[in-house]
Amino acid sequence: MSVLNTAVKPFKAQAFKQGKFIEVTEADIAGKWAVFFFYPADFTFVCPTELGDVADHYAELQRLGVEVFSISTDTHFTHKAWHDSSETIGKIQYAMIGDPTGAITRNFDVMREAEGLADRGTFVVDPDGVIQAMEITAEGIGRNAVDLLRRIKAAQYVRSHPGEVCPAKWEEGEKTLAPSLHLVGKI
């Protein structure tokens, strides 16, 4: 079952962010763009490369008005220990949510039940709390923050320009399409 075009379900969780433990709920994304970035586990191999990549692009995400939440089924305590012991993870400024019960992971339908771990799932959520884009990859396939930025810019463009859509490989500033009867069969 796809969660695309559905609202984020209510949740409450503890997170580690910028040296503090904080509580995060769905209310924290109300009226904002957000990215929920699920990964299998702390202290692993592909995961820190992905989280580090997002950290390297966090300032640009912030300029776009996007808040980032990384999530695994580890605890917020484990996130702090990882943050304190890894140079790559130590540069993260966004919230690292602990989901030891798996409730949030299940809400986004990315729980691997047999292992109690999240799949690699990325979800772009609009200011209404609705999931506009998602990407799920297998364990060994890392994601790319540059492509995530492109998808967010496209989602923001489409939201602010009703009646227009962004074609494949669209980059900010490029031409879009206005679907109509006259366009059918001409692309």
Rank of each mutant, 00 (worst) to 15 (best):
P48C: 11
G31Y: 11
T73Y: 09
H76M: 00
T78Q: 13
T101W: 12
S86H: 00
A59M: 04
I29E: 03
E50Q: 05
S86N: 10
A81N: 11
Q93L: 13
E60R: 08
Q93N: 15
A30W: 09
D28T: 01
H83Y: 15
G102K: 01
Q62K: 15
F37A: 05
W33C: 09
T88G: 06
D56R: 08
Y58R: 06
A103M: 11
V35R: 00
K32N: 14
C47H: 00
F36P: 01
E67G: 14
V66R: 04
Y58F: 12
Y39T: 03
E50R: 07
I29P: 08
A59T: 10
E87W: 06
F43A: 08
A81M: 11
H79F: 10
A103H: 14
T75L: 06
G31F: 12
W33L: 10
K91G: 01
H79R: 06
K80F: 09
E87S: 09
G98R: 12
A103S: 13
G102D: 03
C47P: 01
F37K: 04
V54S: 08
S86D: 06
T73C: 15
S72R: 04
V54T: 13
T101M: 07
A59Q: 14
P48Q: 15
I89F: 11
S86R: 04
P48T: 13
G98D: 09
D84E: 13
D56I: 10
T78Y: 11
C47Q: 07
T49W: 10
D56N: 10
D42E: 14
K80C: 00
E50S: 00
I29A: 02
G98M: 11
P100C: 08
L61W: 08
F45W: 07
A81W: 03
L61Q: 05
G65W: 01
A30R: 08
G65T: 02
W82T: 13
T75E: 14
P48H: 15
H79N: 09
Y58G: 01
V68L: 10
S86V: 07
A34K: 01
V54Y: 14
K91I: 06
S85P: 05
P48E: 13
G90Q: 05
H76W: 06
D53V: 04
T78H: 10
G90Y: 05
K32L: 14
K32Q: 14
D42L: 03
P100K: 11
G90F: 03
Y58A: 04
T44G: 06
E50T: 07
T78V: 15
A34Y: 07
I104Q: 14
G98A: 14
A103R: 11
S70L: 02
T73Q: 11
L61V: 07
F69E: 05
D42Q: 11
F45S: 07
I97R: 02
G90N: 02
S85F: 08
I71S: 04
G98W: 10
V66D: 03
G52K: 05
G90L: 04
F37D: 01
Y94C: 01
G31R: 06
A103P: 08
K80T: 12
A59D: 15
H79A: 14
A81I: 09
F69S: 01
G65E: 02
D42A: 15
F69H: 04
E67Y: 08
V35L: 05
I92Q: 12
F69Q: 02
I97Y: 04
V35T: 02
Y94R: 10
A34W: 06
W82K: 13
P40R: 03
K91T: 06
H76T: 07
F37L: 03
H83F: 15
F45H: 07
T78F: 10
